[in-house]
Design a binder for these strands. Structure first.
Lengths: 216, 216
DNA sequence: GTCTATAAAGGGATAGAC
DNA sequence: GTCTATCCCTTTATAGAC
């Protein structure tokens, strides 16, 4: 019944298994959460025996930590590019706004956040790691962009970091919280666009350079 | 060893036990999350036998649902009062901003949100209930306040609901997300005030009535 | 209604063969 | 390195006495 392994392959591709395990664990942790995911299930999903899991990871917590660390790297890949000078500044804000909002309410982001938030009370180090790799990086890039814009006279000079936080908060609206809580079945493109448009509008009204004042 | 109950009290205060159970379950679920809280622990914390739990609640999920429903009612009690005409409008915004922010990053709110968010994927109805009773109510009251303010010429006329969402987003900053992820050990009053101040400033710049235009 | 005691199942982790 | 089989503990849920 069982396939007879030839003696030729005792240690077959050592890298492969780890990736299978990490991917399988990620899927299950995101979908069912930490506590509700069993090592049995991970082993089955990864098509590996349970004992093999414990060869690569000391325990369930370590496996979870590895998933989070891997997760953080893959998030926050949003295109904040200062180039493309031909583009209208407001149009650029709209583009960034949409990109950021799309990322924040994407199903993968949501299930990812749920997984981490649910355990953040018990594993604060992982929460911090996740924030730094995700929202932290995004805010950093946005801050740089706004700093340049302020220097270039596109925006009123002020705290660029604060501006970045506010911009994210404005285009996020309460859509992310609603997504985290599973409030909406589906959010239409129109709703999303409306939030971004209003957010950019508010942001720009507050940060645009006054035509009259500031004659330094 | 055990106290001998007099025959006078077979069904002692039927209401009492339920409250004990609900309170104990709430504490444990908030602290340890759904999956990591055992019915044994709840029974012990509530000073009740495990069998008694199952008299009042069909199972663990039902108990959790009861906790969430109870929880939602108690949140969102923030004082948004339109009266007090003597107060400067910006000062009022600052007061509301602080009250809202305080609520959002309060430890009870954070552990509460963690508990619900962590399970929202499996129990979407509870997530919606929680949102409606919490953030939903808050936004509703704030919307009313802004609508009055717009009508009274204190703010530029526009979508009051959207303004409410943006106001909350601005005074929240990313403090709540950081709190949910356990990023900061402690947030100083100075940091909090700084976020509120900047948020109100941005909000007011965007929504104040232009001195020159709008001569309808 | 409330308790003690226990059934029934599932989970994390490991021993030992190959 | 990888597997099968298993240990041992915890968990949900219930039976039965009072």
């Amino acid at each position: 019944m069982q396939a007879i392994a030839s003696a030729q392959e005792p240690a077959v591709r050592p890298r492969r298994k780890v990736e299978q395990i990490l991917a399988a664990a990620g899927r299950l942790f995101r979908e069912h959460g930490y506590a509700m995911t069993s090592m049995d299930a991970v082993a089955q999903e990864a098509d590996v025996s349970k004992a093999t899991l414990y060869v690569y990871y000391a325990g369930k917590r370590e496996l979870f930590a590895a998933v989070i660390a891997d997760e953080g790297d893959q998030r926050s890949r949003v295109l904040i590019t200062g180039e493309d000078g031909a583009e209208d500044f407001r149009a650029k804000l709209m583009r960034f706004g949409h990109a950021i909002q799309d990322l924040l309410i994407a199903p993968e982001t949501v299930s990812s956040y749920r997984m981490v938030v649910g355990e953040a009370g018990r594993l604060p180090d992982l929460g911090r790691l996740y924030y730094d790799n995700g929202a932290g990086r995004l805010l950093g890039r946005l801050e740089q962009f706004f700093a340049s814009a302020m220097e270039g006279g596109k925006l009123r000079a002020s705290d660029a970091r604060r501006a970045a936080e506010q911009f994210v908060g404005l285009v996020r609206g309460d859509l992310m919280l609603r997504a985290l809580l599973g409030v909406d079945e589906r959010v239409t493109a129109q709703q999303r666009d409306s939030v971004v448009r209003a957010g950019v509008d508010t942001f720009y009204r507050a940060y645009r350079v006054d035509r009259e004042a500031t004659p330094e």
